Amino acid sequence: MTALVQKPQPWESATSDAPMRLRDILKTLPPEVFLKDRRKAWLKVALNVALVGLGYWGLAVAPFYLLPVLWIFTGTALTGFFVIGHDCGHRSFANRKWINNLVGHLAFLPLIYPFHAWRILHNHHHKHTNKVQVDNAWDPFTVEYYESLPPLLRWGYRQIRGRFWWLGSIAHWAKLHFDWTQFKGKQREQVRFSVLFVVIGAAIAFPTLIALTGIWGFVKFWLLPWLVYHFWMSTFTIVHHTRPDIHFAPVQEWDEASAQLFGTVHCEYPRWVEFLCHDINVHIPHHVSTAIPWYNLRKAHQILKENWGENLKESKFSWELMQEITDYCHLYDGSKGYQKFPQ
Rank of each mutant, 00 (worst) to 15 (best):
L43H: 12
M322L: 15
S194N: 12
A62N: 04
A107M: 15
F197P: 11
R154V: 00
P244L: 13
S194T: 04
F108M: 13
R96I: 00
R38F: 09
H240C: 12
V143F: 01
I160W: 06
H86W: 03
L209Y: 08
G162M: 12
W155S: 10
K316I: 02
L106R: 00
K97V: 13
G55S: 09
F141N: 04
I25E: 11
S335L: 08
Q323V: 01
K131Y: 00
R154I: 02
V45H: 06
I72N: 12
V288A: 13
F82C: 08
W226R: 13
H301Y: 15
H330E: 06
V228R: 14
L29T: 10
L224Y: 14
K44T: 15
K220I: 04
Q133C: 00
V45P: 07
G309P: 08
E274Y: 00
V143R: 14
Y56A: 06
L224I: 15
Y157F: 14
E320Q: 11
P19C: 06
L59P: 08
H126C: 05
L121K: 15
E306V: 06
D255S: 09
D255I: 13
F231N: 04
Q6V: 10
P285F: 10
W222K: 11
K186C: 03
A50D: 04
E147H: 13
V52D: 10
V288E: 08
F178M: 02
L152D: 08
W98L: 05
E310T: 01
Q182T: 14
F93Q: 03
K44M: 15
I120V: 14
D279P: 00
R163N: 07
H172Q: 10
A46W: 07
F93P: 02
I303G: 04
T79H: 12
A77E: 07
I99M: 12
K97W: 02
T142G: 14
A257N: 11
G309R: 05
L47K: 06
S169E: 08
S194P: 08
I210D: 04
G89L: 08
K340N: 03
I25M: 11
W71G: 11
R96P: 01
T74N: 11
L70A: 07
R154W: 07
V5P: 01
E324R: 03
I204F: 13
L22Y: 04
V69D: 00
Y295A: 04
S16I: 03
A14P: 07
D17R: 12
G162N: 06
H286N: 05
Q133P: 00
S234H: 12
W98C: 01
A50K: 10
S148E: 13
V191W: 11
E189C: 04
Y113P: 01
G201R: 07
